[in-house]
Design a binder for these strands. Structure first.
Lengths: 216, 216
DNA sequence: ATCGCTGGGATTAGATCCAATCTGTGAGCT
DNA sequence: AGCTCACAGATTGGATCTAATCCCAGCGAT
């Protein structure tokens, strides 16, 4: 039950339903989701571990604000770890798994053409998830997935910028090509570059952080 | 309160007081530490996040067993992220901070000479913690410190092997030297090698994992 | 004799209750 | 008028209570 509450709150934070710096009281959430305060409490601790909310003893939780320094740190973690998974996946993948990843990437191209940001981000999650599953490094994967929601908060603001989805699609295809030809290190390096480019582009747009200074 | 319980349980797992695969019941811990079961529950969730215990719904927690694959994953995370912190620290450090790190490393040499494993590991933690503090990347640091307890479980078994402490001391001094001469990338690379060597040496001794198959 | 099933004890998950702490408003003082 | 302090309401953290689930011993059937 705590898990469901965490999932719901996570989505609300990522989607901006809960604004940065907004206070989250256990009682309000409990009433809204029709559960007791206990699962809410546990969910908030989980989200605090992911950095989505900040907890202060005897005060409560508030939505962690977006800020450039935090963005950089989140992407440092992804940049250091995701290539490891991609490289491992490239060494282990079989034809069937590769075909499945190709299919997912094809879907993402459709979303990109339609400028369907929500759809694209969802498919993108599945693509990365598919690669991670093949890599079979659950512990490393857990660290990365822990940063996903935060990363998506930044990307969601970022994707509003025009013409970025196509760039992403091309980079994904390059990674899959490298995996297909068995160039594990290349695949990892391409993934690393992909993440770094995303981070640098995001960093160039500090105006994305200004809104959301909402202080209840 | 939950934090204190987590700290205590973490120490007991690392020190082997709680054996691998041993079941941890909320009630028993609550009674032993003279708190209610609620903080124990929260502590166990925290420890599950660090991978020290495995939770199963409606069943409870048990101490995660040591195993070679998990060791590799833990060290992959450290190898990818700690050099980033070291490099950042090298770029930001001032003379006073450097002197403090030198002092800590001197302490570690004393422990190494005395073959004082517990003392050495404690000082080692302080050294790494000191470097991390200078790096000023709290989010990255949080990920690494989350892996620390697990890494220490393996190291603790490892340090029983003779003559390893001295190697470690030398490597630490090399890292500090690189930091002192402002060679940030060298410092990071040396740190990476330091971690990788530790991991490889550990992997060469699978017998360290055999004990602890204790299934309460 | 071994396997499967049932019932009781143990254990966890969730709800409710209570005490301690914080926040914020408003009165009183300078 | 502005600041300080105190009190009341709100909120969290911890304890206790209840229901659901699991584990396991013991019994019966094959």
């Amino acid at each position: 039950m705590a898990a469901e509450v965490a999932t719901k709150l996570r989505a609300e934070i990522v989607e901006g339903v809960l604004a940065p710096n907004e206070r989250i009281t256990q009682g309000a959430v409990a009433e809204r989701l029709e559960v007791s305060r206990l699962p809410v409490r546990e969910a908030l601790q989980q989200l605090a571990g992911e950095g989505l909310v900040s907890l202060e003893r005897d005060v409560g939780a508030r939505v962690t604000p977006l800020d450039p320094k935090d963005l950089i740190e989140t992407y440092i973690v992804r940049e250091a770890l995701e290539p490891v998974l991609t490289e491992s996946a490239a060494r282990r993948i079989d034809a069937e798994q590769l075909a499945a990843l190709r299919a997912i990437n094809d879907e993402s191209e459709v979303c990109a053409e339609r400028e369907d940001i929500d759809g694209y981000l969802a498919v993108d999650r599945r693509l990365h998830g598919g690669i991670f599953a093949v890599a079979d490094l659950p512990r490393v994967q857990a660290v990365i997935t822990g940063t996903f929601a935060t990363a998506e908060r930044y990307r969601r603001a970022f994707s509003i910028l025009p013409h970025r989805l196509e760039t992403s699609v091309v980079e994904h295809r390059m990674i899959l090509d490298a995996i297909e030809r068995g160039a594990a290190e290349d695949a990892g390096e391409l993934h690393r570059i992909h993440i770094r480019r995303t981070r640098l582009t995001l960093s160039e747009h500090p105006e994305l952080f200004s809104r959301g200074g909402d202080d209840g």
